[in-house]
């Protein structure tokens, strides 16, 4: 049932120009960043060779590329997520799901999976670009893998957050803007609250950066998983409240 809903989400997404335009624009931006990063690396190579322990191409090119992709994901996900529930509300299609023999958690998980799979397709773009460097040199596969898992986990968290905000309203644009505000806020916590330990630990950036430096730490992985689960549960509760309050 979850797979049926996820497949339908993907089908609708690819039936709209939105998915293709998103993939196209992101590919363009990332390719430009990638090439300028490669250019900078080639320019610096002579000086780097003089260092005792020089940073490799993965660290100099791939990691910044994933960092840029993460920022783009932060902006794009709320826009893709806004449709999930808000548009169903606005088009009065939610009764189809609510009167079908499907539980609320299954509806929420199906919607979440549909979006997450699409975001993972976006993550493949910088991964393939980074892998293309393998043709001309050696890559630090461990670092690449840590970056990739960071992106996939970040995508899950942002998808769950966007889905929750989409449950709050019948206006997709309101869902998009508030979702974007919340994800940027969680991102920026890092800059503003460096001294406040407890709140600082909530920052998305803090946990993503550790992964992108190659530390595949179970605490960071747990943070992303808990973050995702929490917002999915909030989304289920919110949908149930609609049924009770009308």
């Amino acid at each position: 049932m979850i797979a049926t809903i996820a497949a339908k989400e993907l089908r609708v997404l690819f039936g709209l120009p939105l998915a293709w335009i998103t993939l196209g624009v992101l590919q363009g931006v990332l390719a430009w960043l990638f090439l300028s990063q490669v250019d900078a690396f080639l320019g610096l190579q002579a000086q780097l060779a003089l260092l005792a322990n020089p940073p490799g191409v993965t660290e100099m090119v791939a990691a910044p590329l994933f960092g840029a992709a993460a920022m783009l994901l932060l902006v794009v996900t709320p826009v893709l997520a806004m449709r999930l529930i808000a548009e169903e509300r606005r088009n009065h299609t939610l009764p189809l799901l609510l009167s079908a023999p499907v539980s609320l958690p299954a509806i929420v998980l199906g919607k979440f999976l549909g979006l997450w799979v699409f975001l993972c397709l976006i993550v493949i773009l910088p991964t393939l670009m980074a892998l293309s460097l393998h043709a001309g040199g050696t890559l630090d596969m461990g670092l690449l893998l840590a970056n990739l898992s960071g992106m996939v986990l970040l995508a899950a968290s942002l998808a769950a957050l966007g889905l929750y905000f989409s449950c709050l309203t019948a206006h997709p644009a309101v869902a998009a803007i508030s979702g974007m505000g919340a994800s940027l806020g969680l991102w920026l916590l890092d800059l503003v609250l460096k001294d406040v330990g407890a709140l600082h630990a909530l920052s998305l950036l803090l946990h993503f950066e550790r992964l992108s430096r190659g530390f595949l730490n179970s605490a960071d992985v747990a943070y992303f998983l808990l973050f995702t689960a929490a917002f999915l549960m909030l989304a289920v509760r919110r949908l149930d409240r609609d049924r009770v309050r009308g």
Partner: peptide
């Protein structure tokens, strides 16, 4: 048992719930 009960149910609301892009 909402899931088991809804197996036997078909519903057309006042505004038909249709995905226009399908």
């Amino acid at each position: 048992e909402p899931v088991a009960a809804k197996m036997h149910l078909g519903y057309l609301p006042e505004i038909p719930p249709l995905y226009r892009e399908l």
